[in-house]
Nucleic acid binder design. Structure first.
Lengths: 342, 342
DNA sequence: TATTTTTATGCAATCGTTCCCGATAACGTT
DNA sequence: AACGTTATCGGGAACGATTGCATAAAAATA
């Protein structure tokens, strides 16, 4: 069903003016007489005229919309980040178009290309765990399409980036577990290509080193689907606990991995003895049994910062060449799950 | 910064064809020779031509985008519903533009108007708790703009609607609490105008009636901001527990209200004695202490169904007059929080 | 009164694409 | 040989809005 709308032509016809006069009157141009302006404005109000944003987009070669590509909306970190994105975009007069990649490289590419074919003025993206090949993004960026990476960033493309201090967050969480007296701390994390995976692993390793705990690679488990598949995490946990060298604590990386492995851990017998901490932006972690220790990322601020950078790129007259990577601090929220019980 | 793109004109100029020929060749028209088609297609591929969706939108008077207005993305129910929306829209070739109303009538109106000024082909909306005046939505609908309500619907506008069986969900949860032996069941819910509020209240009341428990209005507390403001819920709880007629169980309505009041309840002394159940789509309710009993709405299916209905309206040749209200069943997930302890 | 200046308005191009008409040539048909 | 078909392609209007330029009428000036 087509939706009948009022155009500037309808006003012009009804009032016996040309479209240019109507257009100028509506924009309050000085070259239109007060009387004409009044007539036009009143009639426009009466028939509830709204300018067609699509026609404007075509004319001005911009859509006043920004695209967002994340792996999943139903994830506390991302939904909070989107809130931050939306808060800035809204005030600056931009729409936000959100698409999900479901941790799939192909789906991500489709979404990005769709965005890039000029339906948005710029792109905010957090890479999917399945993404390896970034050439299409690189080409887009080289052509001058504004892109800002947030959360899951990449070294391969030089542009603005915003991320949490994943290294420090992981370092602090691991060190906290060490201070609690845990000796064999396992690390469950997502795909090894991801920036956040590498940074968090590095923080974990360096915390161990600082406290002279030997780094044992068999205690690190990668879940390549970023927690989308619960079985993957269950398997990782099972393999950690089946050998003789069982961990006494777990440090998880990522919203989904944290909650799923926390849940799976309870299905294992020795649960209450195992310390637990993980990256998560869940708001109800204090309601858990036991209350869960988390590394909280400033998701809202990350979204805001990334959006500000993107809009600055979009509205810049000349090509932006001076790129910046902003790193925001995480917060370690210590609760019962990471406490050593005697 | 403008983003230089390839148009059909560039191809025409480079290949010395007219734009019409190029356009037809790209669409595979029968009136273009195979040879020409091949030349055009190959060149288009080479320079990575993508049609401009904005120009298409203007020409075809449609955007192939649907707008979504919800109160909040960072809410389990809505993020799951959006997943459902996106899953259908994606397969049907539609973009999804999401905006948040933050439970504010004004913000909702701004978003709806923005959507309606032809940047989307139709609208999916779940009303905000602050919304009282629906005249602007009614006008839009009367003009033929496709709108489907989901979750928080209204009687005032005749169109397609999708919602959970809120009445039955509330009835079952309340009855479950009654079976457990609770006698004084309080009900914490959101703004009284909302459809979901009325339906859930009705289910609560009728369950009490069925079991000959007198309905006590002072046990029902409305939080008009739908849980956006934690203090409102804390106050409601405090007033419930300060009198002599303290409730022995609580039935909460709505994702946010459920988790916040569950949390607040723990701050009160008599916590472990009070039974608790509430509407919530949280995925980690079994990790709570105690594990929380919830009425789960089929959020994903609600989103899917609403989107299918909307696209059907959009693509219908003639005005749709036969409207339908689909009601999907909820699921009562019984856990420890609603169990009577002796 | 003649000329210039000001004021108010219309014309037409533009953005990228599609599509209704024509236009042109190469055929085939009488 | 004249005409009709068919195959291929181009011209240009249209979608809705803006805007530089032209122009008419009115006002101001000489």
């Amino acid at each position: 069903m087509k939706f009948e709308t009022v155009t500037i032509k309808d006003i012009a016809k009804a009032l016996n003016f040309s479209t240019s006069t109507v257009s100028r009157a509506l924009r309050g141009s000085y070259e239109i007489s007060e009387e004409t302006k009044k007539i036009v404005l009143e009639y426009a109000e009466e028939i509830n005229y709204r300018p067609n944003p699509i026609a404007l987009s075509l004319k001005e070669r911009r859509s006043r919309a920004i695209g967002v590509v994340v792996s999943e909306i139903a994830n506390d970190f991302f939904s909070q980040a989107i809130n931050g994105i939306e808060s800035i975009a809204y005030n600056r007069g931009y729409h936000v178009i959100i698409t999900q990649a479901h941790e799939s490289e192909e789906r991500e590419k489709v979404n990005v290309m769709h965005h890039a074919s000029r339906s948005v003025d710029g792109l905010l993206i957090s890479l999917s765990s399945g993404t390896v090949d970034l050439t299409y993004l690189k080409e887009l960026h080289d052509k001058g399409f504004p892109i800002v990476f947030f959360d899951r960033i990449t070294d391969e493309i030089e542009t603005h980036k915003v991320t949490a201090n994943n290294y420090m967050g992981a370092f602090q969480a691991t060190e906290h577990l060490i201070y609690q007296g845990f000796k064999k701390i396992a690390h469950i994390t997502s795909a090894p290509y991801l920036s956040i995976t590498k940074e968090r692993l590095q923080g974990y390793i360096e915390a161990l080193e600082k406290h002279h705990i030997p780094y044992n690679e068999s205690l690190v488990k990668h879940c390549n689907h970023g927690g989308m598949i619960a079985e993957e995490i269950a398997e990782a946990l099972a393999s950690l606990f089946k050998g003789k060298n069982k961990p006494d604590a777990i440090f998880a990386a990522g919203d989904r991995i944290t909650t799923v492995s926390f849940k799976e851990l309870r299905n294992l017998k020795s649960k209450s003895q195992v310390g637990f901490a993980g990256f998560s932006n869940i708001k109800v972690g204090d309601l858990f049994d036991p209350p869960i220790t988390v590394v909280r990322q400033p998701a809202f601020q990350i979204g805001q910062t990334a959006t500000e950078m993107l809009i600055q790129m979009i509205e810049s007259k000349r090509p932006v060449v001076d790129f910046e990577t902003k790193i925001l601090e995480t917060e370690l929220i210590i609760r019962d799950s990471s406490m050593k019980k005697e």
